[in-house]
């Protein structure tokens, strides 16, 4: 029975029976959930996203930590990938296994992310599809989207000053050039903005 299940998962060559069994189990489970979801089951869809989220987390953490990146970045990618899987779920062909489909998306988003953040894809090994489903990780770090949500509460000037200097990592001079404000104005905005942010965070903590 286990052999049949292993054969079902396509692109693996095998010296790791335990991992293979885990992968094929995950494949069958995810496939069942996704097929049910596409047929209209919202409950299965939620479960599908949860399972997939944990696989994606393990995958992205594994890839990014090796090249010295943070958990937050991995979590951003998990969310980005879940979102595109949601909006492009019609591209899944129900006659095909789900692993290669999910892996192709996860890998595409990883490479796209690395390219955008100016690292070379060569730094991060990109492997076969089975790797994605071999592990799960349920410890979710919060993504940086939280910062974006908090920033949205600030006035435009403070928001752009903090965005430039603290999130995008520009120098004060670069931020001034980008926003058209003077350097002093940028510094003042950052200072005030950070104070306002601290208040907001304190407020939400209470």
């Amino acid at each position: 029975m286990a052999d049949d299940a292993i054969d079902f998962v396509l692109p693996l060559g095998g010296h790791e029976p335990a991992r293979l069994a885990r992968v094929s189990q995950a494949e069958e489970e995810l496939r069942g959930l996704l097929v049910a979801s596409l047929g209209g089951s919202a409950v299965d869809y939620r479960r599908f996203l949860e399972r997939l989220g944990s696989h994606l987390r393990a995958y992205y953490k594994g890839k990014l930590v090796r090249s010295g990146r943070t958990d937050t970045e991995a979590e951003d990618l998990v969310q980005e990938t879940l979102m595109v899987i949601h909006t492009r779920r019609h591209t899944y062909d129900v006659t095909q296994p789900v692993t290669p489909w999910v892996h192709a998306i996860a890998r595409y988003k990883l490479i796209d992310h690395l390219r955008q953040t100016r690292a070379t894809a060569a730094n991060v090994p990109v492997e076969d599809a089975g790797v994605l489903l071999a592990h799960g990780d349920h410890v979710a770090a919060e993504s940086s989207l939280d910062v974006a949500r908090l920033l949205a509460h600030l006035p435009a000037k403070m928001r752009s000053a903090i965005q430039s200097t603290k999130v995008d990592g520009l120098s004060t001079a670069e931020a001034a050039a980008r926003s058209g404000m003077s350097e002093t104005a940028v510094k003042v905005s950052v200072h005030r903005g950070l104070k306002a942010l601290a208040k907001l965070v304190g407020g939400t903590a209470r």
Binding site: A42, L49, L82, H86, R89, D93, A140
Partner: peptide, 25 residues
């Protein structure tokens, strides 16, 4: 944003319509 929140959000915006690759084709 927490990933669980996102999943909740995506799950609730799920439309109960079957989707197939033939649509894209």
């Amino acid at each position: 944003m927490k990933t669980d929140d996102l999943i909740g959000f995506l799950g609730s915006s799920f439309e109960r319509e079957p989707v197939r690759t033939s649509w894209m084709t």
